[in-house]
Design a protein around this nucleic acid. Structure first.
Lengths: 120, 120
DNA sequence: CTTCGTTGCTACGGAATGTGTAGCAATGGT
DNA sequence: ACCATTGCTACACATTCCGTAGCAACGAAG
């Protein structure tokens, strides 16, 4: 790796703070804002099994542009969902629990697909 | 209401089709693309309890611009998650199951918030 | 029929966000 | 000294989103 840690611009939506499209500060609103940004869900998904280096993660996400990837990783790190360690980027303990809350999506998506093309 | 149904431009990511950032056609990828678009998660969330008219839904979503709202509703309708009835816009049966898969997010968000401001 | 209020929805210009390529500085190995 | 890899940035272009204004279709009331 390279570079030491560098504090970021603090752009990630956080609970108890007003976010895009909601000034109430309700935690769920911050979360929806965060997860609703492009590539965020995908990044979390690609980290579900194992950590990955920046470049490896980029490949897993179909070569997303490093600009956005870095932006998303910054946001996710800022709120304690993702961390950078010697193994590369990976989910924190909290991040793992979030992903568990998202896991049912895969099963749902399969059932959803069946309704588009019955044969499976 | 007004206007009869009008077939749309088919821009929604569907399972078994290549989507933005993934040509595999895996259902979960289509879903992540769909849900990762701005306001999609929020719209689903605001419909969790009861249907709403276009204008009412817009207010619930902090006055999101009608352009995007209509775009999102079109996508969600196209894939059978949302429908427009006499009651206004509401979740379909399938949409309801998707939302159930997302409900744990609220609980997670609350716990998340606690780690930012211990007192609650 | 006319007026009024509400419906879903669109046009359009400007602002924000995302994309793609190239490449830099730091680190570790040989 | 080299070389490969790391995380990450610069910059110009494209897409998406936003905010305001307003249209056409319907229902109810006069």
């Amino acid at each position: 790796m390279c570079y030491v840690f560098r504090s970021m611009a603090s752009k990630a939506p956080k609970p108890r703070q007003p976010v895009r499209g909601s000034r109430t500060g309700r935690p769920i609103m911050a979360l929806l804002d965060l997860l609703g940004r492009r590539w965020t869900l995908r990044v979390l998904w690609e980290l579900r099994d194992a950590p990955a280096t920046f470049r490896e993660l980029r490949e897993r996400c179909d070569d997303v542009s490093p600009t956005v990837l870095n932006q998303r990783l910054g946001e996710l790190r800022e709120v304690g969902i993702v961390e950078l360690s010697g193994e590369g980027y990976g989910l924190t303990a909290r991040g793992t629990t979030l992903l568990e809350a998202l896991l049912p999506l895969d099963a749902w998506a399969r059932a959803w697909a069946r309704s588009f093309a019955p044969a499976d």
